[in-house]
C-alpha cells in the first residue's frame, strides 16, 4: 500500500532522512521505533506531503505521490495524527472532529456515521462534545486527535507518538484502541518511543536512528533483539 524507496529529506544542509526504505502492506500495523530526533516525524511529514523529499520515491496505492500537496494526500487516503496532540484548542470537541472530516464535507450522511463511530470508540468524547478541546485532559485530547484523523476515513492512518505524556494505564487503553482501529480494516503506521507497548500490538517494525532505518523485522524478532531490549525496553 505504501512504499518509500531511498527517501532523503534535507533541511538546508542538514540531512534529516537518508535513503529510507519502508513498506507497509494493506491491513498491517507497522511501528517506527526511534529516540527523539531520529526522524520518525519527518518520515510522516514526507508521506503526508508537508515536506518534499530531496530524493527517492513515495508510492501510495500504486501511485507515485512525490510532491503531492498535503490536502491532496488526504484525498488520496492518508490521515495524520500529529505529535503532541495538536488540536484546535478554541473549537469544541465536536468541531475538532468535524474538521477532520473536512474532505467529506459534502457528504453529510457519511460524516454523521463517522462521528457516531468515533463516539462509539471514545464514549467520553460524546459527553464532552460541547467542551472547548483545549480544556480536556491529555488523554482525552489524544482521543480527539485520533478521532479527528479517523473522520477523514483514511486507508492509512499515521499516528505520531500517541502515548507521549500519558499515564501508563491510559497508554494501555490507547494501544488497545489503536489495535481495534487496525482490526476494523484501517492500515496503521505508528511512530513510538515506547517500544514495549508498541511491539505488543504491531505486526512489524522499523528502527530509525539518525535518519536511517537500522533494523527491521517482525514484532517478535524486534522484541527479542538484544540491542532493542537495551535501548528501548530496558530489560
Amino acid at each position: 500500500m505504501l512504499k518509500l524507496t531511498d527517501v532523503t529529506v534535507r533541511f538546508g544542509a542538514f540531512e534529516a532522512l537518508t535513503k529510507v526504505n519502508i513498506e507497509v502492506k494493506e491491513g498491517e500495523l507497522v511501528v517506527l521505533l526511534g529516540a527523539n530526533g531520529a526522524g520518525k516525524s519527518t518520515i510522516f511529514n514526507a508521506i503526508s506531503g508537508l515536506y518534499k523529499p530531496a530524493a527517492g520515491e513515495i508510492e501510495f496505492i500504486g501511485k507515485r505521490v512525490n510532491g503531492y500537496s498535503p490536502d491532496r494526500m488526504v484525498k488520496e487516503g492518508t490521515s495524520q495524527c500529529p505529535e503532541g496532540k495538536k488540536l484546535f484548542p478554541d473549537m469544541t470537541v465536536q468541531q475538532n472532529l468535524m474538521m477532520g472530516g473536512f474532505v467529506h464535507r459534502r457528504h453529510k450522511d457519511q460524516l454523521k456515521t463517522s462521528l457516531e463511530e468515533v463516539y462509539e470508540l471514545f464514549p467520553i468524547l460524546r459527553e464532552k462534545k460541547e467542551h472547548a478541546a483545549g480544556s480536556l485532559s491529555g488523554g482525552q485530547q489524544q482521543m480527539v486527535a485520533i478521532g479527528r484523523a479517523l473522520m477523514a476515513r483514511p486507508k492509512l492512518i499515521m499516528m505520531d507518538e500517541p502515548s507521549i505524556g500519558l499515564a501508563p494505564l491510559i497508554v494501555e487503553q490507547m494501544f488497545s484502541i489503536i489495535r481495534k482501529i487496525n482490526e476494523s480494516g484501517t492500515t496503521v503506521l505508528l511512530a513510538e518511543q515506547n517500544a514495549n507497548a508498541a511491539l505488543k500490538i504491531a505486526d512489524r517494525g522499523y528502527v530509525i536512528e539518525n535518519g536511517s532505518v537500522v533494523l527491521q523485522g517482525s514484532s517478535k524478532e524486534l522484541f527479542h533483539n538484544d540491542a532493542i531490549r537495551q535501548a528501548y525496553i530496558g530489560a
Binding site: S69, D71, F88, M91
Partner: peptide, 23 residues
Amino acid sequence: LTGRTYIAIRNSEELAQTLGINT
C-alpha cells in the same frame, strides 16, 4: 464550516493542511 476552516488556519496552517484543507 468556512469560518472554522479559517480558524483552523489561524491555529496552525500545517495542521489545517494535513486535514485536507487547501490553505
